[in-house]
Simulated scan of single mutants.
Amino acid sequence: MSASVSLTDVAQAFPGRERARLALDGITLDIEPGQFVCVVGPSGCGKSTLLDLVAGHTRPARGAVSVDGAAVKGPGLDRVMVFQDHALFPWMSVADNVAFGLKNAGIPEAEREARVAKWLGKVGLTDAASLHPHQLSGGMRQRAALARAFAMKPQVLLMDEPFSALDAPSRDRLHVELQELWADTETTIIFVTHNVREAIALGDRVIVLSSGPGRIIGDVPVALNRPRVVESERVVALAHKVRGLLDEADQLGITTPREGGDSYVSI
């Protein structure tokens, strides 16, 4: 299952000592059901704030956020977050961690067990079901977090730099595995990262944000064959173009829409 996501003229601000500080401004973005969209930009540009708005953890200061045409008014089971920190409960086994959300959602025990077994199998953790998080490698813990998320059958999966703390080999394997899980489920994914190559390797589109307040300065389609890896020459070449957008924005000091034109550019 998947859902469309729309943000229309969204702005978000946070209290400051003297006045509110804009984190995002003028964000208009339409994501089709089943798309894999990556969001990149410098630190402080509002990438995580964008995810929080779609998740319903916060409400926009201006504009509208909707999922499948319904206004986002708070968190819902149709949207699931995966964080940089795996957020597994240390006192629970891997299987119990994967089952936690299902149990809270009232899923019957038999179906719960079936879903847990299915997703542990898909992420290669069947033999680790009875282990606890401290007994797992970083990559295995993040696989458990993915199993927990996909087991909920979300329509939209929101991912906030989930692989940034992993070593390169673990990250590369998870890039391929995530693409396979996404292809199997057709879940809509919004994936935030600082790593431009990672964004190109994973996304159907890469949304490029300017420095804070974040505004869209690029919407880059990625039509490369899957599965992709960050070392691919085509990934590297397209990543170079995306970095060029970021460099151009930085050199021009773009933090507001360009006068007399669009507030973003496409390549």
Results as ranks from 00 to 15, higher is better:
residue 44 G to V: 02
residue 167 D to V: 11
residue 233 E to N: 11
residue 71 A to W: 00
residue 199 A to G: 08
residue 264 Y to G: 15
residue 159 M to V: 09
residue 202 L to F: 12
residue 40 V to F: 10
residue 163 F to P: 08
residue 252 L to D: 14
residue 151 A to H: 08
residue 263 S to D: 15
residue 182 W to H: 15
residue 249 A to W: 03
residue 163 F to R: 01
residue 168 A to T: 09
residue 236 V to F: 09
residue 140 M to G: 05
residue 7 L to F: 07
residue 155 Q to I: 01
residue 130 S to Y: 11
residue 202 L to D: 11
residue 18 E to L: 06
residue 267 I to K: 06
residue 193 T to Y: 11
residue 232 S to T: 05
residue 140 M to N: 10
residue 42 P to C: 00
residue 245 L to H: 15
residue 182 W to V: 09
residue 62 R to H: 15
residue 205 R to A: 05
residue 88 L to K: 10
residue 32 E to W: 03
residue 63 G to P: 09
residue 247 D to T: 14
residue 76 G to Q: 11
residue 92 M to A: 06
residue 188 T to N: 08
residue 243 R to K: 08
residue 236 V to W: 02
residue 171 R to L: 12
residue 41 G to W: 00
residue 167 D to W: 10
residue 246 L to Q: 09
residue 82 V to A: 04
residue 217 I to Q: 05
residue 137 S to G: 13
residue 111 E to P: 07
residue 206 V to F: 00
residue 4 S to Q: 04
residue 131 L to R: 15
residue 3 A to L: 14
residue 29 L to G: 00
residue 117 A to C: 07
residue 261 G to K: 07
residue 208 V to G: 00
residue 59 R to H: 15
residue 89 F to V: 08
residue 114 A to I: 01
residue 114 A to Q: 14
residue 122 K to L: 14
residue 246 L to A: 03
residue 59 R to W: 00
residue 213 P to W: 04
residue 243 R to F: 05
